[in-house]
Design a binder for these strands. Structure first.
Length: 358
DNA sequence: AACCCGTGGGA
DNA sequence: TTCCCAAGGGT
């Protein structure tokens, strides 16, 4: 989520009534819903009203792109088809299904949430946003999303997409320093089509994801451009429509060497410290920040690029019987059969997949 | 309130 | 290649 800067947002959202010039709010809702009905992407979580599946998609989609979620979503549901199976699973198993998605605390909270629902709610999701927000990993956005999509509760969502769409509709300030203020939520709630709250919320997000995108919006395809304050005031000058962004920190570049050691159907893995802030308790290949002696000739297998938060790694994987593995940190020999049940880091998963091990 | 948490893909 | 991230939540 973007950084909050309430003064700016209050001014920009409160000063201008919507819709402008006495246009019909109902017409705005109809135009957006009609566009959504015809142009929305067909995604697995839009083919169901099952709150379990809606919930899972919302958690996976937090700060994560649709493309990255699709495969994990399918496999996760295969392994944990309902709230009971998820609640009964071990945390390690749940994390193993989450491997590669990042933000692993989401998976731990997802698991805890499932156990809470199984124990305290008879295995059924509480069907309103007030109760949902009390559950682990469910904040205001996610509670409103589940309640509106799965239970038709007329409550609006505000995520990064909605934030941007509202900003442009109101058309006062262009800033990416913005914004989840009470005024934003209030405006979203005023716009909400209470007849179809789930579809309306998804339509706002879909508009932000596919048309009213960051950078250069595709205004020619926008179903609500005649309600848009930005396109009106800018007189169609495309370059001025972009959102300003706060400066980002320059990436840190690091090199890493890790050992792919195989022996009799076992692989050597190391568990990260339980108290680590980054990916605590997860398993990975033995690694070193220092180049082992003569690694190029001895055992170099492949080089990977991998980024974690703001650090870009160049990873040299050593994989050879002749490799000198004595320089590697000690690990534990794990049966290859059981690796799929183990919570492994995204980098380790990527390397093992490249080798066909998993 | 500001900061932290992962990743792969598109421009 | 480099830069931008993407359907937030917890602390």
């Amino acid at each position: 989520m973007l950084v909050s800067k309430s003064i700016t947002a209050e001014r920009s959202l409160a000063a201008s009534p919507f819709p402008p010039n006495g246009q019909s709010l109902g017409a705005f809702r109809r135009a957006l819903l009609r566009w959504y009905d015809h142009h929305h992407r067909h995604l697995p979580w839009r083919e169901t009203r099952d709150p379990y599946r809606i919930w899972l998609s919302e958690i996976m989609l937090q700060q994560t792109r649709v493309a990255a979620v699709l495969e994990h979503y399918r496999i996760f549901l295969q392994r944990f088809p309902n709230i009971q199976s998820l609640a009964a699973a071990s945390e390690d198993t749940v994390l193993s299904a989450w491997s590669g998605l990042g933000y692993y605390r989401r998976a731990r909270m997802l698991h805890r949430c499932a156990q809470r629902i199984a124990k305290q709610h008879g295995g059924c999701f509480p069907p309103d946003s007030k109760a949902l927000i009390a559950l682990p990993g469910i904040g205001r956005y996610t509670a409103a999303a589940i309640a509106s999509i799965a239970f038709d509760e007329p409550v609006a969502v505000v995520d990064g997409n909605v934030e941007r769409v509202l900003q442009r509709l109101v058309g006062k300030e262009r800033t990416a320093i913005a914004l989840t203020t009470p005024q934003t939520w209030q405006l979203a709630q005023e716009l909400l089509a209470t007849s179809r709250p789930g579809d309306f919320n998804q339509a706002m997000m879909e508009l932000g994801a596919t048309v009213c995108v960051p950078g250069e919006p595709r205004c020619a395809f926008c179903p609500v451009r005649k309600w848009c304050g930005t396109i009106a005031q800018e007189n169609g000058a495309p370059s001025a429509r972009g959102m300003l962004k706060p400066p980002s920190a320059p990436p840190i570049k690091k090199k890493l060497w890790c050992w792919l050691s195989l022996r009799n159907g076992d692989i050597r893995l190391v568990q990260r410290p339980r108290e680590a802030s980054l990916m605590p308790g997860m398993w990975e290949l033995p690694q070193s920040a220092e180049a082992p002696p003569a690694w190029k000739t001895a055992s170099h297998w492949r080089t990977f690029r991998h980024s974690i938060t703001i650090t870009n790694y160049t990873v040299h994987v050593l994989r050879s019987i002749r490799a000198d593995h004595s320089a590697a940190p000690r690990g534990k020999w794990i049966a290859l059969d059981s690796v799929s049940q183990l919570p492994i880091t995204g980098l380790t998963r990527k390397i093992l997949k490249a080798d066909g091990i998993i």
